[in-house]
């Protein structure tokens, strides 16, 4: 056995040195290579998992937002229809009110116009009466050449005018 080992060059000192060599390499690689790399792989894995979870959450939120958006749009649509319907109703009511008011106002205007016309006509009649009285007075004065007592004349004139009105009517 010893001869065999000698032929193969096996020497316990070198064998021990090689084993120590390997152990040194093992501990150094474990500390400086494997541990940082394994830690990094774990960190990356957890970050990827977190990223995927966030993506799922975002997709879920997006779906929820879409549902909310649709609901809000539907609500807004309903509200808009209600507002339009209210506006139409209000407009119709306002139109009727305005029309009624306009009719009232036009009637008032017509009534006012009629009153003014009536007053004007009265005034004109009085004026015509006054003018006719003056004309008759002047005519009679010229025809008669004398100036009769004023009060009698006037009573005559008035009588004449009454007669004249009776004849006209």
């Amino acid at each position: 056995m010893a001869e065999l080992l000698k032929n193969f060059g096996v020497e316990w000192k070198v064998l021990l040195a090689q084993a120590v060599n390997f152990f040194i390499l093992f501990f150094l690689l474990k500390k400086f290579a494997y541990r940082p790399i394994l830690d990094m792989l774990r960190r990356r894995k957890s970050e990827i998992e977190r990223g995927l979870a966030m993506r799922d959450e975002a997709a879920e939120n997006l779906a929820k937002t879409k549902v909310m958006e649709e609901e809000a749009a539907e609500r807004a649509n309903k509200n808009a229809l209600a507002v339009v319907s209210d506006a139409e109703e209000t407009a119709r009511r306002r139109k009727d009110e305005i029309a009624t008011e306009a009719v009232k106002k036009s009637e008032q205007i017509v009534e006012e116009a009629r009153r003014i016309i009536r007053e004007e006509r009265g005034k004109m009649a009085e004026e015509v009466e006054r003018d006719a009285e003056a004309l008759v007075y002047a005519g009679l004065t010229r025809v008669l050449g004398v100036l009769p007592p004023e009060i009698r004349d006037r009573e005559l004139i008035r009588e004449a005018l009454r007669e004249l009105k009776t004849i006209e009517s």
Partner: peptide
């Protein structure tokens, strides 16, 4: 000479490990 080669191998691997540990990035 094999012991010397073993040292060279260990040296190469330690240099690589040092390079890796310094520049580990996400």
């Amino acid at each position: 000479n094999t012991l010397v080669t073993s040292w060279v191998v260990v040296g190469i691997l330690i240099v690589l490990a040092t390079l890796i540990s310094r520049r580990v990035a996400i």
